[in-house]
Design a binder for these strands. Structure first.
Lengths: 268, 268
DNA sequence: TTGCTCCTCACGTCACGTGAGGTGGC
DNA sequence: TTGCTCCTCACGTCACGTGAGGTGGC
């Protein structure tokens, strides 16, 4: 039999880990000196410890490992648990891959320009909302909301900031479809207004734009450059959320949103 | 200004997260009602929150994010911190990739045979040791340690279990070089014995073999099959650690070790 | 007696999640 | 008065790491 230190060295774990597994009943030592409390581990116990370590490294929680090594689970149950581990491992891998891509993009940027960029792009989910909408056709982007939004505001009391969706076909000959939307209470059907559901975005690249909308093009380009650098793909129309458009133009705060394809940046 | 709930919804974080960032001083609300304690967030604060979230998602600790968003760090320092994030993200990605490979190997095995395998292979580091050695040539593996180890044991008191290293050239015509090693105190130079350093193994695939060494071949094959299934590569000679060889042959406990190449299973 | 190994508490980690219990404005 | 949003504690998470303070055998 081995002392705690010797057994830990052989197995490649810490003494504290052995103590912990003893505490939670995963692996009790073969012998315990009743007077001194000294633990003694039998050589054959390395097999059980190894099984525990393998399952731990597969991503199982210690609480789940107990029943498995004690053969309390059937092969079928174990298969199910392994499938869960599989999807978990897969999604963790994807997560780490996109994280790495973003760190690398950021690092490249700072090595070239030697300073932090002054905007930040966050990928998040945008919930669906019930909105009152008004759709108009515009010849170009600068003819934005000067007319459309105020008309909406006068008619109803919104439950959130106004949103503009631009359905730009990319074809310069065709006009841009501008949908001005104002979140409303689903129950309240305002008279004569088009109340519908604005679909959410499962993944959207978003950033904050400061000041007048006249300079928004630069930030749209920033969004596209970012997508390029991190391996993301934009798919769909942009939206603008008017977080603060009460004061003068240069104090406006807008959130720009671009829908992204669901797949993470890098697949194996 | 937005209430806590509205701001959290817009930013895509939980109310608790906003409370937490307020607590640790990362992001105080623009206004706090001194009577009710109600927080109020300005639209422009979304920019700071976004910057925090981006850095968090790059892998920074919240404690490091404070100085960065407050511009307390120079571009050079930030570059250094990003390089740290980079190696960290890289190694985490590698870790997840090998984890996924092992889960998949295990899942395939259980789907085919519908039961758990009864051996477990642990990858670990093996430390270098000072050992007393005796090298002999053997014609084949079955002529193992019947003679060599007892001679060593009689001469010195070991500080750990005996080890055998097999330097098999793979060429059947040439004999296998068997190195029988017994860990000893580095200070004690036993008279007439060859005391030297047994190099450690940075990464070794190890498993426990039960019973007589006559059946060890099957477990060596298991090790090789495992390496194949998980994308690992064996490189070097095998070792056997005699954890328990006191009783009858079928109670022996041996650890088998195969050195692995340093690279993780899957590279991008 | 000096080292060496071992022991048992018990707090700390990290970024929040999750109730419990209560208050303010419409 | 009823909902709704908001508030402040304060414990829990997960697998150990890390001392503190002390004992047993050579």
């Amino acid at each position: 039999v081995f002392g705690t230190g010797a057994f830990a060295r052989i197995a490649g774990v810490s003494v504290r880990t052995l103590h912990h597994y003893d505490e939670i009943g995963l692996l009790h030592p073969a012998t315990v000196d009743s007077r001194t409390g000294y633990r003694g581990y039998a050589a054959a116990q390395l097999a059980r410890l190894n099984r525990i370590l393998v399952l731990r490294d597969l991503g199982f929680a210690l609480a789940d490992i107990g029943p498995i090594v004690d053969e309390q689970v059937t092969a079928g149950e174990l298969r199910g648990m392994l499938r869960l581990r599989h999807v978990d491992a897969q999604s963790r891998l994807d997560e780490e891959a996109t994280r790495l891509a973003r760190v690398e993009a950021r690092l490249e940027q700072i090595e070239q320009e030697d300073e932090m960029i002054d905007y930040d792009i966050v990928v998040k989910q945008v919930e669906a909302q019930t909105v009152a909408v008004r759709t108009e056709l515009a010849e170009a982007f600068d003819e934005r909301l000067g007319e459309i939004l105020p008309r909406l505001y006068r008619a109803i009391t919104p439950t959130g900031p106004a949103i503009a969706c631009y359905e730009d076909s990319g074809d310069e000959a065709r006009p841009i479809r501008v949908v001005a939307a104002l979140p409303v209470d689903p129950a309240s059907s305002a008279d004569g207004l088009d109340v519908r559901d604005l679909p959410g975005l499962a993944r959207a690249a978003t950033m904050v734009h400061h000041g007048s909308m006249a300079t928004v093009d630069r930030d749209y380009r920033n969004l596209m450059r970012w997508a390029d650098a991190t391996g993301e793909r934009i798919e769909g129309y942009s939206r603008e959320v008017y977080l603060d458009c009460d004061g003068p133009l240069d104090t406006w705060v807008t959130e720009l949103q671009y829908p992204l394809v669901e797949e993470p940046a890098l697949r194996r």
